[in-house]
Design a protein around this nucleic acid. Sequence first.
RNA 1: GGUCCCAUCGUCUAGUGGCCCAGGACGUCGCCCUCUCAAGGCGAAAACACGGGUUCGACUCCCGUUGGGACCGCCA
Length: 472
Amino acid sequence: MTVRTRFAPSPTGYLHIGGARTALFNWLFARHHGGRFVLRIEDTDVARSTEESVNAILDGMRWLGLDWDEGPFYQSKRFDLYREHVERLLRAKMAYRCWCTPEELEERRKKAIEEGRPPRYDGRCRNRTDTPEGAFAVRFKVPPRRTVFEDMIKGQISFEHGEIEDLVILRSDGTPTYNLCVVVDDATMNITHVIRGDDHINNTPKQILLYEALGYSVPSFAHLPMILGADRTRLSKRHGATSVTAYREMGYLPEALVNYLARLGWSYGDQEIFTREELVDKFSLESVGKSSGIFNPEKLLWLNHHYIKESPTERLVPEFLRHLERLGVDGSRDERVPVIIETLKERAKTLGQMAEDALFYFKEDVTYEEKAARKFLTPDKAELFRMLIERLASLDPFTRDAIQDAFDSVLREKRLGLGKLAQPVRVALTGTTVSPGIFETIEALGRKRTVKRLKDACEFIEKTSSETTATR
RNA sequence: GGUCCCAUCGUCUAGUGGCCCAGGACGUCGCCCUCUCAAGGCGAAAACACGGGUUCGACUCCCGUUGGGACCGCCA
């Protein structure tokens, strides 16, 4: 039998980091076994589901490269199928009508909690023979025994049915509920392995009971440990960015996120970096851990940095331009872009940061950081800058090696170390004391701008030195 | 509160009874390299929750305690 897995998000928000990992593990498992990966949208809660959310989820999946073989299927389009199944259970007396209203149930629940009893449905409509007027829900009759199943990650798990209440499978408005839909869908879509978060463990016995009642074979289950925030509670908005989209917007690479998510809960010896192919090749549920993991943004950042460094420059160009644009710079027609990226690759942890760091290359005028200017743009530098301008003007080709030669010749003549010239030039060109290596910076900035900025710096020096003399 | 799940450095983890006075990675700290910042190299601090068993021998097996988490809906 070929492996079939599925990812079944409910479209009530964006693709969450936790959801993305569930999707990834399902995808990896299917791909590893040469199986099929199915996408299903669980939108039975019509009120909370939105199309916008569906699109966000699909976009997120595509961006991460999690392609699906079938779907997306929408539960909202399969209501007839679910109702048929409910009918079947009703006819077999495995389910019954319940006329208790949500308000009554809520009241009983409250009372039960107050009296210290478990807040469970008391089954009062179970053996009811009359058929009152009004809307009714349908409940599944949970048989009195225990259910044991073998979880592929957690091992054997067992539940005493006394703990399970007769669950509603059809609401009084005629719409089916989650537990029924999942079972009907997974069964009719021939899902062989249900891989999902372990927050679903408590639903599993109910679902197994439904499979059995409906005469379907029960799939294998694998419950993934949760991803927690730094405070060890379920990862949520309070822990910072949790949507896949947000990471894309910040300039993370999908391969970094995929690699990070794969390693959160799964491991392969001491290996940290995995290509997509390696992941598919090496993934197995046996090496998925049982305990929940805390989302660590620092490590994700490290991986992102790694992938930025390793990516071919062409790969980064379009994304880089996008981030530049958000900062108000159109670099699309600037042929220096690849070279500029080269200078920044090694030090940018995100593409967003790379764009920010690249801003000085594009600005018309440099604004000096006050402290930097005071320290490095001192009167003695004007002469050095002029010598440099002269030599740079005649360089051909204008490459980092040639630029270094120009520096060397000035330095030799003046008997100075590189440090004495590099920092002032850096300030003149970028306005700050931090930038890529000075030769590559100049090469990427280009001759015209370099010369212009050095000249501007000379003017600045003259102006400030005359001011200080004047105040003396 | 009930049910279920979980428990190795701050974090992700390796470890499936002797190879472990516990290995790797992120982060942190120090040193080296150096035109700044990074990158890179080298090094350091840092963990088997606790208590009982089982065993010649437990991080590894069993039980309990403690701690953490999830779920308890006519949400999914």
